[in-house]
Amino acid sequence: MTREEAVKKLVTAGRLSVAHVEDFYDSIIPKPVVPQFVADWYEEHKDEFYLNLHRVVRDFFEHLNDYYFNENPIDYDFACWYYNTKNAIQILVNMHQFGYEVEEEKRYTVRIRNLDDEETYLNYDRFRETWVFYSREDTDRFRTTHTTKQLEDGCFGWVFDCEGFEVIEVE
């Protein structure tokens, strides 16, 4: 029974409001929290979920090398997650039955050490789609906090290992 079906049944049988039943349901049946790439895989395959899940289970080990050499990073990340997660099948089924939440990725500011605070923060210019050193202020134009993936995609993954840069995790 899906979440929606359970909510409808409880609303009818218990003569409760939908909001109360949804809150109650969510409090006793927690949604799985998964990385974004797992949510992306699920969204791509949810219409024929059980067929696609069967394919993953059946074909995974036979085509493991295809995942490793595939140019699609979602498939590679998903394959690694599936292989390394003890209860991956249960998590995927729970996502389908109860919904899911995407785990928050850690975000970081990156700053050049030992320089005056002004214009030493690594920013992504959303308008020009380039990286610049600018202020700490996050604006519509400039993003000042970045995920590890964003930094790696921008060829800045090395800042985590460089003593000349200060990388601080932010909320």
Rank of each mutant, 00 (worst) to 15 (best):
E71N: 12
Y124H: 04
N70R: 13
V102G: 06
L10W: 10
L51M: 11
D140F: 04
Q90L: 07
I112R: 12
D153A: 09
D47L: 13
T85W: 01
T139P: 03
E171R: 11
D116W: 06
V34M: 08
Y82P: 07
T139A: 00
V38F: 03
D40Q: 15
S17K: 04
D66L: 14
L151C: 03
H54M: 12
Y67M: 10
E62Q: 14
Y100C: 04
R58P: 02
Y67K: 07
I29V: 15
E137C: 01
W131N: 06
V56W: 02
N123H: 07
D77N: 15
Y42G: 03
A88R: 00
D117Y: 07
E163Q: 12
E129Y: 02
Y121D: 08
N114M: 00
L10Q: 08
F24H: 03
N70F: 08
D75S: 15
E169I: 00
F37W: 03
I29W: 12
M1T: 11
F37T: 03
Y68P: 04
E104G: 03
Q36Y: 07
A88G: 01
D153P: 01
K86Y: 14
K46G: 06
E105M: 00
V21T: 00
Y108Q: 01
N114G: 02
R113A: 07
D26L: 05
F37L: 08
K106A: 15
G14D: 02
K31Y: 09
Y83F: 10
Y50W: 10
R128N: 12
Y82S: 01
H54Q: 11
K46I: 04
I28Y: 13
D47N: 12
F160R: 09
K9R: 11
N52C: 04
Y42I: 06
H54L: 06
K9G: 06
I112E: 10
D125W: 03
V132D: 05
F160H: 11
K106G: 06
Y82R: 08
T139C: 00
T130L: 11
E43I: 04
P30T: 09
T147D: 02
K106Q: 10
V18P: 00
T12M: 10
K149R: 12
E169T: 05
R141Y: 02
D77C: 10
G14C: 05
L92Q: 00
W41D: 05
T139L: 05
L10K: 01
Y134G: 11
F69M: 14
E48C: 08
L115S: 05
T147M: 01
G154Q: 05
K9N: 09
C162M: 09
I112W: 10
Y67T: 10
F160G: 05
N70E: 13
P32E: 00
I89K: 14
W41M: 08
R141T: 09
P30Y: 09
K46M: 08
P73F: 03
Y50S: 09
R126H: 06
R111T: 08
F156E: 02
R113F: 02
